[in-house]
Design a protein around this nucleic acid. Sequence first.
DNA 1: CAAGGGAATGAGAATCGTTGTCAACTCAGG
DNA 2: CCTGAGTTGACAACGATTCTCATTCCCTTG
Lengths: 149, 149
Amino acid sequence: MTSTEPRGAQPGAQPEGSAPTGPAVVRPTRQRIAVAEAMASFDDFRSAQEIHDLLGQRGERVGLATVYRSLQRMVEGGEVDLLRTEDGEAIYRRCSDTHHHHLVCRSCGATVEVEGPAVERWTRAMAEEHGFADVSHTLEIFGTCPACR
Amino acid sequence: MTSTEPRGAQPGAQPEGSAPTGPAVVRPTRQRIAVAEAMASFDDFRSAQEIHDLLGQRGERVGLATVYRSLQRMVEGGEVDLLRTEDGEAIYRRCSDTHHHHLVCRSCGATVEVEGPAVERWTRAMAEEHGFADVSHTLEIFGTCPACR
DNA sequence: CAAGGGAATGAGAATCGTTGTCAACTCAGG
DNA sequence: CCTGAGTTGACAACGATTCTCATTCCCTTG
Ligand SMILES: [Zn+2]
Ligand SMILES: [Zn+2]
Ligand SMILES: [Zn+2]
Ligand SMILES: [Zn+2]
């Protein structure tokens, strides 16, 4: 994962009430499976609309709203990473479940997951120094990849 | 500043230095001054609309589009920091002109500017390791401030 | 295996932040 | 006073994301 929430409203809707008869809270519908498979077919960050188009090309008819909804769940579930382009558009990418950050090519979108204790330590230290608790952070690196030069 | 995104690249088209008749490239209009003063009156991050409202409360009538335009210039000029809330909305805050990042309170919005060579070095190293050029980065830390606990 | 109910879907309307348009306006020179 | 580049503001236009709600689907029960 790459981030946590800044300020402002937050979903935070957690499936409360432990059900008596464990009901499948998330149904594996055709659409959700299609979105998951689409997400598995590329390695860069893409917008919801691009993913919707990709589904169309693959012959899967899935409503745009459903794509958004599926993506939201996957992000909440930590199966997908979400970040924002310079102009605020949300872009998604499937990713490993360990904490990490991204090195993204500004021109072609190529992505590399990066991680390291240095930054983690630094952010923790900064927060501690100022008495902040429940700390989280976002960090993305942008640049031009070797192939795009 | 928090990030260094080119986005189309717009090298400051500055007029040649020794100008016989120094042309004021940016006019200090009533509106721009009002926006600048408004920005100086608070310490947290606020949205363009909130800033527009603040102007109204102060008795300054400035068009919303003008507020957006002024803010844009101030961001380009490095006088103001821009970052995005979780839902992609742009929020602004006046800030020092040295490169730095933010430690933001999730609950009250209190902000602390932080900086250090550690992260800068780390991001540079990561980018270099993967052959990326023209590197820039964004890094924000969120948490709960001492006053909000 | 039929039935029932809640979850999920999709088409389109609705939001809403942000940008574009363009006529009116401001102001430094000439 | 005349002129033109820079500005402004009201409002239209945009585009991403969300909402609405009738319909469809999945899963559990009987
Ligand atoms: Zn590239
Ligand atoms: Zn981290
Ligand atoms: Zn606080
Ligand atoms: Zn930095």
